[in-house]
Amino acid sequence: MFYPNSPQTSPQLTQIPYGQQYAMMQRQIQQPYHPFATTEPQARLYPYHYQGPIQQEQGGFITQQSTAASPQYVQMRVTPVDQSIMSGYPNQTANGSSSSSFNYNIHPQQQQQQQQQQQQLRHHAMPVGSVPLQDDRYRKQLIVNYLAPDVTSTDLHELFSRFGELDGARIIYDKQTNMSKGYGFVYFCHAEDAKEAVERMSGYEFHGKWLKVGYSTNPLNIVPSNSSPYVHAGSRGAAG
């Protein structure tokens, strides 16, 4: 039997160049792979992502010199942007860049009308829970959420009447099932009393439920100042 490094198959040491006398086997001759043993700084910083320098080929596509990437890492192929796409944008300079302001050559009167329309939209648009300043009635009506099913309009009136005089209180019921929808409205005579009720009743436990109280901004629920107070009856038909 002959071994790869046996004296019968191995040459004389004098015939082997210096430095390879003890590297006779194939696994010894093959050098191990060192990912950080390279002179390129990109490979030292990113050993798993770097795959060699990027070269520009004919046709405008950018390719990489090395083989496919590892399945664990996804390499994105980048193509140059066609400058003709950006030619339609206004205020574009000769080098292809555009300024931040756009001039669509709008007539001054049209621009003024658009600004007025935007101001009107901001004036009428009102986020949930906010209180408008032009109508004091919005500051007097509250919406009470997360009410228990057994709470009546009379219970709601008695709960909030300790903060001040009320114009009314009612629970909203479903017309088909005649069941409470879980929320109601309270109408105060003074805005200061309503503000105190919002601050003190939010998070209050009532009939096993934690109440959420806020201003009601729905104009359909506003009680006119010259109208008669609501009837605080315990029956659902009268309260709904």
Rank of each mutant, 00 (worst) to 15 (best):
4 P>C: 12
7 P>M: 00
9 T>P: 09
9 T>S: 10
10 S>P: 05
13 L>K: 02
17 P>N: 01
19 G>H: 00
22 Y>L: 12
22 Y>G: 08
22 Y>I: 12
25 M>P: 10
25 M>Y: 07
30 Q>Y: 12
32 P>N: 11
32 P>T: 09
33 Y>G: 14
33 Y>I: 11
35 P>D: 08
35 P>S: 11
36 F>K: 09
39 T>F: 08
41 P>I: 14
41 P>Q: 06
41 P>L: 02
42 Q>K: 14
42 Q>L: 07
43 A>D: 09
43 A>G: 04
45 L>Q: 09
45 L>W: 05
46 Y>D: 01
48 Y>D: 02
48 Y>G: 04
52 G>Y: 06
55 Q>D: 11
55 Q>W: 15
56 Q>D: 01
58 Q>S: 09
58 Q>N: 00
59 G>I: 11
59 G>L: 06
64 Q>N: 06
64 Q>R: 04
64 Q>D: 01
65 Q>S: 06
65 Q>P: 12
65 Q>D: 15
68 A>D: 13
68 A>I: 12
69 A>Q: 11
70 S>V: 01
70 S>E: 01
70 S>T: 02
72 Q>D: 04
73 Y>W: 10
74 V>M: 12
78 V>R: 06
79 T>A: 03
79 T>G: 08
79 T>F: 15
79 T>I: 12
80 P>D: 14
80 P>Q: 01
80 P>Y: 02
80 P>S: 03
81 V>L: 10
82 D>C: 05
84 S>G: 07
85 I>L: 05
85 I>S: 04
86 M>D: 05
89 Y>E: 06
93 T>S: 11
94 A>I: 09
95 N>D: 02
95 N>E: 02
96 G>T: 03
97 S>C: 09
99 S>N: 03
99 S>C: 08
100 S>G: 05
103 N>C: 13
104 Y>S: 06
104 Y>W: 14
104 Y>H: 01
105 N>S: 07
105 N>A: 14
107 H>G: 08
108 P>Q: 07
108 P>D: 15
108 P>E: 07
109 Q>C: 13
110 Q>M: 05
111 Q>A: 12
112 Q>W: 13
113 Q>M: 10
113 Q>C: 10
114 Q>F: 15
115 Q>V: 07
115 Q>C: 11
116 Q>R: 07
117 Q>P: 06
117 Q>R: 06
118 Q>M: 10
119 Q>E: 14
120 Q>Y: 11
121 L>I: 01
121 L>H: 07
121 L>C: 06
122 R>Q: 09
122 R>W: 00
124 H>N: 09
125 A>I: 14
126 M>E: 04
127 P>I: 15
128 V>P: 02
130 S>F: 14
133 L>E: 00
135 D>S: 11
137 R>N: 06
137 R>W: 02
137 R>K: 12
137 R>H: 01
142 L>M: 00
144 V>E: 13
144 V>Y: 15
146 Y>K: 12
147 L>F: 08
148 A>Y: 14
154 T>W: 09
156 L>P: 13
161 S>Q: 11
163 F>W: 15
163 F>Q: 01
166 L>D: 12
167 D>R: 02
169 A>K: 11
181 K>S: 04
183 Y>G: 10
186 V>A: 03
186 V>Y: 06
187 Y>A: 06
187 Y>N: 11
188 F>R: 07
188 F>H: 02
189 C>S: 12
189 C>R: 06
190 H>N: 10
191 A>V: 07
195 K>F: 09
196 E>Q: 06
196 E>H: 09
196 E>G: 05
199 E>W: 12
199 E>C: 06
200 R>S: 10
203 G>D: 05
206 F>T: 01
209 K>I: 12
210 W>G: 05
214 G>L: 05
215 Y>N: 07
215 Y>S: 02
217 T>A: 04
218 N>L: 02
218 N>Y: 02
223 V>T: 04
225 S>W: 09
226 N>G: 12
226 N>E: 08
228 S>P: 08
232 H>R: 11
239 A>N: 05
